[in-house]
Design a protein around this nucleic acid. Sequence first.
DNA 1: TTGTATGCGTTATCAA
DNA 2: TTGATAACGCATACAA
Lengths: 341, 341
Amino acid sequence: MSRPTQADVAKHAGVSRATVSLVINDRVRGNVRISEETQRRVWAAVEELGYQPNEVARSLRTQRTQLLALMVPDLANPFYPLLIRGAQSVVNDHDYQMLVYDSDDKSAREASFVDIMLRRRVDGVILVAFHLKGHEVQRLIKAGIEVVAIGPWLGAAGIDVVAINERQAVNDVVRYLAGKGHQRIAHLAGSQDTPPGQYRLEGYRQGLAKAGLAYDPALVCFGVFRGEGIAELIPPLMSPPEPIEPPTAIVAANDLMAIEALRALKGAGYRVPQDVAVCGFDDIPQAEWVTPSLTTVGQNVGEMGRQAAMLLLQRLVNGTPNQRKPARVTVPHKLVIRDST
Amino acid sequence: MSRPTQADVAKHAGVSRATVSLVINDRVRGNVRISEETQRRVWAAVEELGYQPNEVARSLRTQRTQLLALMVPDLANPFYPLLIRGAQSVVNDHDYQMLVYDSDDKSAREASFVDIMLRRRVDGVILVAFHLKGHEVQRLIKAGIEVVAIGPWLGAAGIDVVAINERQAVNDVVRYLAGKGHQRIAHLAGSQDTPPGQYRLEGYRQGLAKAGLAYDPALVCFGVFRGEGIAELIPPLMSPPEPIEPPTAIVAANDLMAIEALRALKGAGYRVPQDVAVCGFDDIPQAEWVTPSLTTVGQNVGEMGRQAAMLLLQRLVNGTPNQRKPARVTVPHKLVIRDST
DNA sequence: TTGTATGCGTTATCAA
DNA sequence: TTGATAACGCATACAA
């Protein structure tokens, strides 16, 4: 029932426990020399007993868990599974495992993520944090846990960050729409208590300014990135009280919101893009599935995951933890023009 | 730099290490009695030093890691994030964390999952396994790791399984189509080296038989659940060589495949459902987004995740590991009729 | 009510 | 080239 330990292997092979450890960890390549014969015997015993090293004991001894963690705000947003995949692929190639944590975009869950990681002694974390404060992240860093953030993040001072230029991206969208002759461009903004929500709204305002259009608060409404409740926002936006002109284009803060808007608009009898154009943000695979297909900002999300994981592993394997100066990787985005504009 | 241990807390509070352990683990409620004053001092020291229990050491000592793992075949299929969410929600409520592992539908990765879990000494795993053999799962069980499988699985003898009735579900779809007058019903089958691929094909054949329709191999083509390469399957299916009649309905093995088929059909100028009806399987949220919206088999995927996690935790917390007789939970499915049929 | 001592399964530092 | 032996940080049986 109880699993074999190194001691069992040692007894079985007729050698000492230390020898087993040396053989198994391939220390033979160092200056340590162990006879061919002994090695053979050890491996035979391992095989015979079905011995699997106890990673827990190993972690306690080496002070390294080979465990990383990735926190995301919404697993149900297809954007994040792609991010996770990208990160997983490089992490697993380096003998690490990764814990996935869905914070559900909740401040309390983000905070408890920190505690859990502290207790589990993970070697590093990748954060897509919407609510975490700088000092909470500092707790991780002080405990020797390496941290990489993905996405714009206000408390990012001193840590590696992988992101796209959010303001610029929305800016691009707005100017593209203005270039197509749109004068009344609305923004379906994300939660303003999150950095992407704020940055994207800023980008929208910048874009308007650059295009010589006035900012009209009546054209901005606020939703959540999850896309819930967007349908209720559309009627008041599209049929505003008298003197206000309705928009001819809507820039949503992400694809989930844009797709919900699309559905609500179609349901209400609006033609997209003839009556109103719609743009998203992220370029999730589903942006191509909807009708009309969605014009959006393409983020290479898999690449962002990979980059973040690589930064983390660099710090972890190349020694010098917490020493190197923080990296800031900006992943290029591109405007993906489809049928909704 | 180095983090405080219980010994540090003990010194700081002026008590012994054991006392700290007792207080922190809330053993005060047992028959162990510790004075209010001592407790206060311990907690104060914990607070002051920012002590966090070392879960690694604790795991080594208690022989429990409070770690579970969930293996899925394709994180990019929106079905699985919903499953993960369901499981996470109950797992996290019980002071466990969950490792998410994407096997990428690869046999080798599924096998290495087993090794990794064995070494990490996880307390339990939830498997959505497409390739794992019975004896590989037995390795987990022999090591004392609790196992719950989600979905149909051939090597499931003796372990808890949460699943829907796959054959019946496809059966229902075929008979529904037959009832609408379809005589030529095609099947876009999933990989036949996976249980769902096989069961769904079987269900298709059963449905045909029940509806009094002949099985025609020309109406069955084989794709992958991921949905890649479906577009190439459509032209030969829809314009078969001379004597063969093309189908008037297509039953896909999952929604990803159905949606790709939908897109290919529309691209080729077919009208859905007038020229050909399309059905999917899973009812991912995106089934409702596409045009026409997709008729499909609704699986309550979040519920399946929750159920699986509950079964696992029951075994874990209610003692008696591996003793109880295996549970077999069948989650109800339902035909969700939309515009594609 | 609190303290002492031991072991969980490793790795690593010494000697031999 | 190999073998004792001491940590790693904690929980717990037993003593006090």
